[in-house]
């Protein structure tokens, strides 16, 4: 049994979700190989080689992998797939984009967003926005899996795997990246942050969102998140969205500020260790999941809290 983890990286560093995916792979037993595909991504491959538990790193370095397009990457993974029993990707926008493409060509099911490995062919995954957990068993020869990063620890350092360059596949030329607008932020990555400060529609405006939340996030070295309603209203960028259809987070501490707690939002954060809710509506459903609830006007409470944090 050999597992191939397809790394998400930025050329130099591995994305943290890759480390969680490697941990999930370790739960399967067997050798773990990591595929790093990109353009000029040797550093990322070297980083992968140092992750504990990794037996081999495959490096596919070619210009047409620069943009991480699904079509070319899926074709590359397919070419390698024959040697593996499991292909694992993080359940991020990167992994979700590629895994089904690979599975379809292999004529196997794809298993999305697993939160636990029960056996080499049996996994647990949330369905219905996390309102149910299904244990599913695959009858396919190859298992193509995406991994919910918050459900697995990040793999540690200490590995020294060899890096093997592999031949790049052809450039299919089906699509072209025109541009990216990435949210620039010095804050920790939302999906991996230890503390998340999230604002909802209660923030009232984009100005308020940053005026009230930036200072507290700065103090706590927290990532910023948002509800869909806040994103839709333009208070926060779309990649801040936490929930069923946004990011799944499981930080040590999650502060839900002016968020009512719709099930679609809870689906994204209810695995946080500690949830704090600040809301002026004592009946807001968020209080049913919050460990600590503070009822009142966020525009008074948040500055107080920021001050209190000293």
């Amino acid at each position: 049994m050999t597992v191939l983890v397809i790394a998400e990286h930025d050329g130099a560093l591995l994305k943290s979700a890759t480390l969680n995916t490697i941990s999930a792979a370790a739960k399967l037993g067997g050798d773990i190989h990591v595929l790093v595909a990109g353009a000029g991504c040797g550093a990322a491959a070297a980083a992968a080689a140092q992750v504990a538990g990794v037996a081999k790193v495959l490096l596919a370095d070619a210009a047409h992998y620069q943009d991480q397009g699904a079509e070319n990457l899926a074709a590359l993974v397919l070419a390698q797939a024959g040697a593996y029993t499991h292909l694992l990707l993080p359940a991020t926008s990167f992994g979700k984009n590629i895994a089904p493409r690979v599975a379809a060509k292999l004529d196997v099911a794809q298993i999305s967003d697993i939160v636990s490995v029960e056996a080499a062919d049996t996994f647990v995954r949330p369905i219905y926005a996390g309102n149910a957990l299904a244990t599913v068993k695959s009858s396919d020869g190859v298992k193509v899996i995406t991994v919910r990063s918050t459900a697995f620890e990040a793999a540690g350092q200490g590995g020294s795997a060899p890096v093997e360059a592999i031949a790049a596949g052809p450039d299919l030329g089906l699509s072209r990246l025109v541009g990216r607008e990435l949210t620039k932020s010095a804050r920790p990555e939302l999906a991996a942050a230890k503390i998340v400060v999230s604002g909802g529609r209660g923030m009232g405006s984009a100005e308020n969102y940053s005026k009230f939340l930036d200072p507290i996030a700065d103090k706590l070295n927290a990532a910023l998140g948002a509800s869909r309603a806040a994103v839709d209203a333009g208070y926060a960028p779309n990649d801040y969205q936490v929930g069923q259809t946004g990011k799944i987070v499981a930080p040590q501490l999650y502060l839900a500020i002016g968020i009512s707690g719709a099930i679609q939002h809870l689906a994204g954060m209810k695995d946080a260790k500690v949830i704090v809710a600040i809301n002026k509506d004592p009946d807001a459903p968020i209080f049913q999941v919050a460990d600590y609830g503070l009822i009142g006007d966020l525009f008074q409470l948040v500055p107080q809290l920021t001050a209190e944090l000293g």
């Binding site: 949330p126 309102n131 149910a132 244990t135 068993k137 009858s139 460990d291 600590y292 209190e308």
Partner: peptide, 30 residues
């Protein structure tokens, strides 16, 4: 089908915690 569902379970429930009266106590509890 390629996947068989062995079982479907309720996720662990989070229960409501406590209401804190003010910011001071919140920070203290945290």
């Amino acid at each position: 089908p390629r996947l068989s569902t062995l079982k479907v379970a309720e996720p662990p429930k989070r229960s409501a915690g406590v209401r804190v009266p003010d910011v001071k106590q919140l920070v203290d509890k945290l």
